[in-house]
């Protein structure tokens, strides 16, 4: 299935039209995609839909979603999604995000967990852990795409995309994803200096999933992140790198659904 080939449902939130898909039934699960966009997440979304009503928007600036004027930060994005939760009147929502989507999930949860029941963050970025001269997160904009894939994935074949063979809309979505990610994460680099001191406000059950072969971020970074959220659990996912939902969609979905089931 390719989102960009079929007509995708869209939603207008605060005057901005975004793509949004919905799969499955049951308790609501808001899935926040990573910096590489919605396409690589489709397998995980289908797997999650076996146990939840998955609502998966494409972030403003990504895919075909519009970008509101003046939106420049993940903090801005978090208010957009708080509006979306209100607009759809979602309650007891499981909030699940990967990488930049996990950062976004944390930014939402520190502001309000009123509509949330559980939080799952996979290979989350968003905080500064090391000292000022220690780079927590590899500078992906200083890498070629080939170098990035070798660092980000357990199996680089999982990340390679043949742009000459892909549909135009998918190539354009990849180009928009790169630009939108830089817009939100160029400086400060993939983090909000204020976020760390706010994480204690997250008082819902939280799970940190971690693709164990991520070389863009270290596992120590993930464990430090988990330690800042009261009661958060940390679970590695083997044979996966920075995008575990993409490399191990079934394992990813099983772990998420097990956590939501209370196990």
């Amino acid at each position: 299935m390719s989102l960009t080939e079929a007509a995708t449902p869209s939603l207008v939130v605060s005057g901005t039209r975004i793509d949004i898909i919905e799969r499955g039934a049951g308790r609501p699960l808001l899935f926040l995609h990573a910096e590489n966009g919605i396409e690589p997440a489709l397998g995980a979304i289908e797997a999650l839909a076996k146990g939840a009503r998955v609502i998966a928007p494409t972030h403003p600036g990504y895919g075909r979603s519009e970008l509101p004027k003046g939106m420049r930060s993940v903090d801005d994005l978090s208010y957009f999604y708080l509006d979306l939760l209100d607009q759809l009147d979602l309650r007891d929502v499981a909030l699940v995000g990967v990488s930049l989507g996990a950062w976004l999930a944390a930014e939402i949860a520190v502001k309000s967990t009123t509509r949330l029941s559980k939080l799952v963050m996979a290979n989350a970025v968003g905080i500064k852990v090391g000292d000022r001269e220690t780079r927590d997160i590899i500078d992906i904009f200083a890498l070629t795409e080939k170098e990035f894939i070798e660092i980000a994935y357990c199996d680089p074949a999982a990340g390679r995309r043949d742009y000459k063979a892909l549909p135009d809309a998918e190539v354009l979505a990849a180009a928009r994803a790169r630009e939108a990610t830089a817009r939100f994460a160029w400086n400060p680099y993939f983090h909000n200096p204020q976020l760390k001191s706010r994480l204690h406000r997250i008082r819902i059950p939280t799970l940190l999933l971690w693709g164990a072969h991520d070389r863009m971020l270290s596992e120590a970074y993930g464990r430090a992140y988990a330690a800042l959220i009261p009661g958060a659990r940390f679970e590695p996912i083997e044979r996966a790198g920075h995008f575990p939902h993409q490399e191990q969609p079934k394992v990813f979905a099983e772990k998420v659904l097990a956590f939501l089931g209370g196990k």
Partner: peptide, 17 residues
């Protein structure tokens, strides 16, 4: 070619070679 320097449309063309 840092992100945003060219339009997404131009970057998509470059990605296609």
């Amino acid at each position: 070619n840092p992100p945003g320097f060219l339009s997404p449309e131009d970057n998509a063309r470059l990605m296609r070679g």
